[in-house]
Design a protein around this nucleic acid. Sequence first.
DNA 1: CAAAATAAATTGGTTTACCAAACTGGTTTA
DNA 2: TAAACCAGTTTGGTAAACCAATTTATTTTG
Lengths: 233, 233
Amino acid sequence: MKLETLVKLDQSKIQKRIISQIRDLINLKNLEPGDKLPSERMLSEKFEVSRSTIREAIEKLAFYGLLKSVPQSGTFVANIGTIAMNGMIEDILRLEDPDFKSLVETRILLELKTVRLAATRRTEEDLENLEEALIAYKEKALNGLDAVQEDLLFHLAIAKASGNSTMNTFMLIIIPEIITNFQKYHVCDAGLTKRGIDDHEAIFDAIKEQNPQLAKQKMKDHFKELYQYCYSN
Amino acid sequence: MKLETLVKLDQSKIQKRIISQIRDLINLKNLEPGDKLPSERMLSEKFEVSRSTIREAIEKLAFYGLLKSVPQSGTFVANIGTIAMNGMIEDILRLEDPDFKSLVETRILLELKTVRLAATRRTEEDLENLEEALIAYKEKALNGLDAVQEDLLFHLAIAKASGNSTMNTFMLIIIPEIITNFQKYHVCDAGLTKRGIDDHEAIFDAIKEQNPQLAKQKMKDHFKELYQYCYSN
DNA sequence: CAAAATAAATTGGTTTACCAAACTGGTTTA
DNA sequence: TAAACCAGTTTGGTAAACCAATTTATTTTG
């Protein structure tokens, strides 16, 4: 296990090295938005790694919108100037794994917003999905079963009903990490499910009634319960 | 160009098919958290695609925390139950490209939070970085030059100073997309730089004074200016 | 001489082959 | 008997080979 971590660190280090070298190359050659990078083959030769490794680094930078690969044509610098490019690559290289506190903080921020948006924008179809998720949650929780998954899906249904695809995506990214960390720290086992059901129903009702302020308040109460319980353990 | 788009759609469709099939496999075999998936070779044979395609699909699911690949060992189901797994894969398959409105909405939400956090938590080092970014922005803007990059870096410096790694990451994801869309819609050319300088200085001062409420208000004003100007064109 | 046609080279994408680590089962040994 | 060891297999990761589309250079033709 320790070795595996070391291996992954190595991989990560190599990729970071390649990203740094790509950055240096862009600076050295004064490449500007729209300019073409050397081909993957040349880069792999220059940096003495395989094309796969180069491609992975390029894909990462493409994910953050800094590069763009075009088939049979080349990889191009995005419409972002050199200065911003350097700054962002710096940030990407420094990106650390998110800490639990930052995850929770961000989740609360997102959910207090998505629940308001959901209350405002939810369609009838959204409402059906929400109710379905709520019922699934209730059935599990009432029988004393672990309902973490159903809880999670209810919150995701809210994000979907918010009509904001970006926040929906972010929630998808955050939630598994939250789950993992919850389990890692052995917090938040069953025990607050009874209260959880009431919370969820109140949130659902507020969304149904299209009352954003009430929905936000109920969500806030929900988190307060949740994290007070968790942190008190 | 049209062909390229078609090709990419095909790739996307194939990947979605593979992800669906992986989901079906997990359901069929009743794989639970920690269980091992069939090897990439077996999957590539079973689904009649190359290993690369399988790997890409697995990597996507790993990005969302649903799977975890361990070198020389296998790919494992994450600590998320079957129900949540199915729900999340459903969501991932339906994920659309973010629309501009959702990007802006999310950016505002994030920045109003990060600026408050930055005002509360900023270290002296953060303050130096912020000032550096501010000066770079002012120099460019005062000379009538395009200062989009410097503007962007100032906002990223705020995200960094917020001490919330998750929000920092999200800002990194959002900002290039915003830039691209701004340029695509040909909005927000120069013209509000004068006002922009004042806004940035006010935000910086509030962070320096560690006044979260003021910082948030100044950021709000900044966005109001910005998007009024943009949407009025 | 110019323009159209064609062949050669270059590109990112895809498939295949190879590698070292790690797991597996059986054997040996204290 | 059980712990240690060792060969063989399986694994994800990596490098290399191949492909189709594109671009560029050259040739042909009016």
